[in-house]
Write a protein that binds this DNA or RNA. Sequence first.
RNA 1: GCCCGCUUGGCUCAGUGGUAGAGCACUCGCUUCACACGCGAGGGGUCAAUGGUUCGAAUCCAUUAGCGGGCACCA
Length: 937
Amino acid sequence: MDIPKTYDPKQAEASHYARWEEEGCFAPEINKDAQAPVYSIVIPPPNVTGSLHMGHALQHTLMDVLTRHKRMCGYRTLWLPGMDHAGISTQLVVTRELKKQGLSRHDLGREKFIERVWQWKHESGGQILAQMRREGASVDWSRERFTMDEGLSRAVREVFVRLYDEGHIYRGDRIVNWCPNDQTVLSDLEVDKVPQAGKLYYLRYPLKDQNGNDGGEQRALTVATTRPETMLGDTAVAVNPEDERYRELIGATLLLPLVGREIPIVADEFVDPEFGTGAVKVTPAHDPNDYEMGVRHNLAQVVVIDRDARMTEAAGEGFHGLDRYKARDKVVQEFEALGLLEKVVDYEFSISKCERCKTVIEPLISTQWFCKMDQMRDLALELMTKRKTPQFVPEVPYEKVYTTWLENLRDWTISRQLWWGHQIPAWYSADDIVIVARSEAEARTKLSNIERLTDAKRQELRDKFLKSGDVLRFDVIQREQEREWLMQDPDVLDTWFSSALWPFSTLGWPDETADLKTFYPTSVLVTARDILSLWVSRMVMTGMKFMDREPFAFVFVTGTILDKQGQRMSKTRLNGVDPLDVFEKYGVDATRLVLASIGSTDTRWNDNQVESYRNFANKIWNAARFCLLNSEGAKVSENAFTKESSQLALHDRWILSRLNRTARDVHNAIENYQFHEAVQTLYHFFWDDFCDWYIELTKAEVTAEEASPERDVARTRLISILEQALRLLHPFMPYITEELWQRLPGVDESLLHPAYKGAHATIMLTRFPPGDAALIDERAETEMQAVIDLISRVRNIRSEMNIKPGERLTLIVNSQDENLRGVYEASRDQIARIARASDIKIGEGLTVPRAAARAILVGGAEVCVPLEGLIDFAQETARLNRELEKLQKEAGTLEKQLANPQFVERAPAEKVNELRERLDDIARRTGTLRQTLEALK
RNA sequence: GCCCGCUUGGCUCAGUGGUAGAGCACUCGCUUCACACGCGAGGGGUCAAUGGUUCGAAUCCAUUAGCGGGCACCA
């Protein structure tokens, strides 16, 4: 048999995925058990423009571990993959491509541009899905979805129409976040607040002289602003009604400098008298708070900044056409020239920037579509209050973040001025009737049912349109000839509108499909925390509204992967680690173990960790290599331990116990999303228990030269334990486990979980070892521990005494405990082999030569290694005295605690007994030690 | 400003009301016939500080400091 000494991950990674996929192992249909419980996960759809980063790899690993584990437990599993059309990013990518050819999207026109985006999607989009195959993600590719698919688009229209018909969606003029670069509105969540060092300008607005007398010192009111250019659109100054300084001025009139407009001084609670001068300039058209004040005081809205962030005609002769920042400088200069600039102070404030292009947002009044969230919000909050669903993992802090966010929810701006996305299913008739429908045909039907307007009314509306042509952002006049024309709203919906429906739209909603019935609600959502409000909460709200069920019971929130300095990995910082590079260097399985260990904690990325798991993979490889090199006559069996377990040798009972305990613990850890614990448990079981001890303990039997039934039995047990261990590792390390499993003798379809009858043999469809409590053998573990302790102490003596590794020793083991002696006796050969002893004497009160190194064992037993000529008696006495001291100190603490009546009275009896037992053991050991020291004198 | 989290050996991180853990790094010894990506044996932490609750606190509570996150405001 030819097995390389070092594991080559690439070879395994190239071999198995395609076969799993071709044989349909990922699809729920592979499960033939009609009664099988269902487990489903929908992937957080990555952007079609995206490529794999560590955050994805982390999420995907966790989802894959969960899915593979449940699949091996016999569940009908579905992990549904797909992508998000990512409105703005995608449009930008394609626009950039066009630009290289000297074209703008307007050159192509909307229809051609969208065709072009689809073409781009087919050619270069969805790179990330190919990368997911490398990760080993066991997703059902036959159910892949895209948010712009016809089915999902239909769901979007359906939801829009229903929400509109119920009055939750409306259209109106509001102050919105406008990105002058992307030329679209953004929701509050798509805006970053960035702290910035800026200036606060104190501007003086002269009071209009009531007497018409210009003489004497002009009285003025000073306002403070960070955006002087907006003063051109001021229509009032506000002060707090309680502010003594300005009380008399309320109702007075100011003369707005540079513009000459007369503006009132109004009183408004919003104004904080402590800030600035306590007087606020009010620009209703360019600031959200001023907008609100404008509504309260019925102020005019003067638009002075346009969609390109340039000054409008209304800004006045000298400013029209200027960029907003040029205008700022000019305003300041002119105020200074007029002596109206009181002062300029440094001031740090937050500025709103577009999340994507980092352009400074311009608040503008604009006609947009909005979605009222109150009803859906209440549904989600009720779900949390009454049923504590979804359950967040970890619960702290996410449940609170989620709930607080919901409680403070405001209307959602859902329209976007883009071409790529779901076009809003609203049509306008020539006579300004808005029709929301699932299709243009339905819109026409609806329109025909509406009582039409008189010609006079139409004419009036047409005139209105002509005057404020911008309102609907399309040319009414040209198209108005035909009475029956309908124009669809040119805007598209926020990308998150379609993602909000993802858990049910992907399963076929609004049709009542079999998939929808089977897989909704899904089992768990695994996601990053930054889209908790953007996405997670909205899925809950739409799920409750349209499905009447929560979309998922659990939300697992992954940690953030940071760089070595503790900074977030980001494209702009260029500090990201590419998962594909890590796969290349250390292998996918090793990387997956690191990611699984990260789970929900924020972690600084460190290649060392991957390296250590790469070593672990190699350890698995070599353990398997040993088993395979000694596998003649053996065959993997699920019933390798058929003898009554009491008749099995200690090391067999022990490994069986360890295996089942590990299986149980790993199963529980995965069920409770304790991925780190699962990995640790597996690591130590495989390396410490299986490799370091079991293989060594069974080595003699397994490597016997002569073939014999005993050898076959030992080999079968060894390889069967290995097979079970590989199954336990499989959800975390799919490639190496499959690679090795396929090489084991005797693996075939008969090992598959009964639910997968008829499938080809693969480890991914075997049964996950259930962890049989009946096979967890406390006694075997305790007894084995005694043997391990004995061997370790002898090794310690070898090391401390500098005894050559090849040197064979004589061991004298004294114990008053008959059972313990029996245990040592039964393991005599193994102890001799592993501790490298030529002779072992086991007894009670055996004489020990004075020249011997000694160690005290559990239960007060003593092991002595006669070392004629090597013992420095003074040194040995000192060493043993140190140990005695340590024991006495510990005994002291325990005695003190046990002497405390309050402890004995109040602590649980179990605890008290435990302490007593420990004290007894220490007493036994101390006794032995004292005798030993006596003998040395 | 409000809310929340974190602070454990040199590094990255687990953990828990009842004797401080892992991996890496470090020291010593090993070509022991699966593995030097290895084997064996070690050293190293008063679990951020202070105060409290408790028979018992690294673990629970309060305060402080440092770091991080979320939300709001910023004229």
